[in-house]
């Protein structure tokens, strides 16, 4: 670590490339915190979007026409409006309507900017997940469900053991596409001052006037994250592939 820091300090002294985060303890702390915030944000959005997708897909199979229409409207709304405006809408409009508490002299909202980013991006990606899960469930033939019930499975058992495992395998590729998109979309949380990587990088280059260096770091960070996710997902896809089916 010492050596690492010394190298970048020397690089700055000799060439002027200021990778301040690698030799300055304070900036390094800031950077590491941003990494954690970003990863937490991604995981939280991911989980929330999956929950939204499950609930949405389930509700789309509902008997009530009103419920189905509401879900369809939700999907179209989130797919066809700018996600950045969605985030602003959630944070400024809904954030304004939700209660806050007295945090020693000033009003602190129960849901902060991080929370609103998760909710907004979760609903955005969830709109796609809903469609993905629904088509996955539709892909499981009625006759396979019938075979399960002929073997004495209850409706719930056949969902747990047959429909869901099959549907999940079917929609995994599409799901992965969406999750990669979601990862890139989390940068929009910048717009409501969530201290994630984009936002922190901006602060660091404002303080240290090292825009090009931080840009390089940003590119490495995000392209690297996407690469890791894509690699992991494609391995997972391969291991989940149903043998004998293309």
């Amino acid at each position: 670590m010492e050596l690492f820091g010394d190298y970048f300090k020397q690089l700055y002294d000799t060439s002027g490339w200021n990778f301040v985060i690698f030799y300055d303890q304070v900036e390094w702390q800031r950077f590491v915190e941003a990494i954690w915030t970003t990863i937490k944000l991604i995981i939280a959005c991911l989980i929330f979007s999956l929950i939204v997708g499950f609930v949405g897909a389930w509700a789309q199979g509902a008997q009530s026409k009103i419920v189905r229409n509401v879900i369809a409207g939700y999907i179209q709304f989130f797919r066809n409006t700018p996600p950045f405006v969605q985030i602003l809408f959630f944070y400024f409009v809904l954030g304004n309507l939700t209660p806050s508490y007295d945090a020693g002299g000033y009003q602190e909202a129960y849901i902060g900017s991080f929370g609103w980013a998760v909710i907004s991006l979760g609903f955005f990606a969830g709109a796609f997940n809903t469609e993905i899960f629904r088509s996955g469930i539709e892909a499981v033939p009625e006759s396979t469900v019938e075979a399960a019930s002929a073997l004495g499975y209850t409706r719930l058992q056949s969902y747990i053991h047959v429909v869901f495992p099959l549907a999940f395998r079917v929609c995994l590729p599409a799901l992965n596409n969406n999750l990669v998109n979601l990862l890139k979309t989390t940068t929009l949380a910048y717009g409501i001052a969530v201290p994630e990587m984009m936002y922190t990088a901006n602060q660091i280059w404002s303080d240290n006037v090292n825009v090009p260096e931080m840009m390089i770091v940003l590119f490495f960070f995000y392209v690297g994250l996407v690469a890791i996710l894509v690699y992991g997902m494609s391995r997972w896809e391969r291991s989940m592939k149903i043998p004998g089916y293309g």
């Binding site: 019938e146 075979a147 002929a150 073997l151 499975y153 099959l166």
Partner: peptide, 29 residues
């Protein structure tokens, strides 16, 4: 359904389970 077994025209095996797992699944679950 414990009394009556049924075999379908289109087999309807569970494609994500091996042959032996297909056979073992229902008695276990």
């Amino acid at each position: 359904r414990k009394k009556v077994g049924m075999v379908f025209q289109q087999y309807n095996l569970f494609p994500h389970k091996t042959a032996i797992e297909n056979i073992m699944m229902a008695p276990i679950t």
